[in-house]
Amino acid sequence: MKITVNRLSFSYNSRPVLQDVALELGEGEILGVIGPNGSGKSTLLKCIDRILKPKGGAIYLDGKEISRFTMSELARVIGYVPQQEDSRFPVNVFDAILMGRKPFLNWKPSRKDFDKVSEIVDMLKLQDIAMRDIGSLSGGERQKVIIARAIAQEPQVLLLDEPTSNLDLRHQLEVMDIIENLAKQGTSSVVAVHDLNLAARYCSKLALLQEGKVYAAGGLEVLQPGNIEPVYQVKIKIHVNGGRTFIQADRPL
């Protein structure tokens, strides 16, 4: 599904968080949204999923403005993976993933919903923890469960807010691989990432935000010292090895 963000603005109270953000993303593409803390990455994702109401501008999915979708219509198209989530009540993994079927439910899950969830459990290799309480899982396992829930929505667009930030190396790669595999099947993803090396490796497009504005957008060429250094206020070195780009943060400027 094609996503078009057109001159989007948002402010918390009167403090502008996003200003005139414009982005475009085609089917099966992964857009990495990068930028320092507070640059508006999470807010952008929340506006796309209509969790927050933008102050100005518009967002289109395949040409249709998102405010013209009903809440459950939108939930059948967009899956959202928040930065962190804590439950104060016991929920087992299977039920947590089943929540992703909520937009399709009339009242209670059907045979199809259960089948779908068990398929996803198999796909993400969550069999061993499927009956455990999510409170007892490690950060990486929990993140996978939340992604599994978003996948259960059968979304055409996936929004992920720093999906790898609390994970160990293996889980980081596993999570990004899942996103990559979904992209191959046509799911467009918008991923807020801190790790520029992961962004370089997995994203087909990049948008660099600075204080709510798009500083640079495009392909991997965004990752060059001329962009990164002024926005992040760090001196960086770029290495290319085996066809991959690696960014090394050297020292703060």
Binding site: V91, M99, K102
Partner: peptide
Amino acid sequence: IYNSWNYNVFKAGDETAKSLGVD
């Protein structure tokens, strides 16, 4: 009981509940 699935989704927080289509 009719709303039990809405309440299930509430447990994951307001933002997630919204993203799952719950008002």
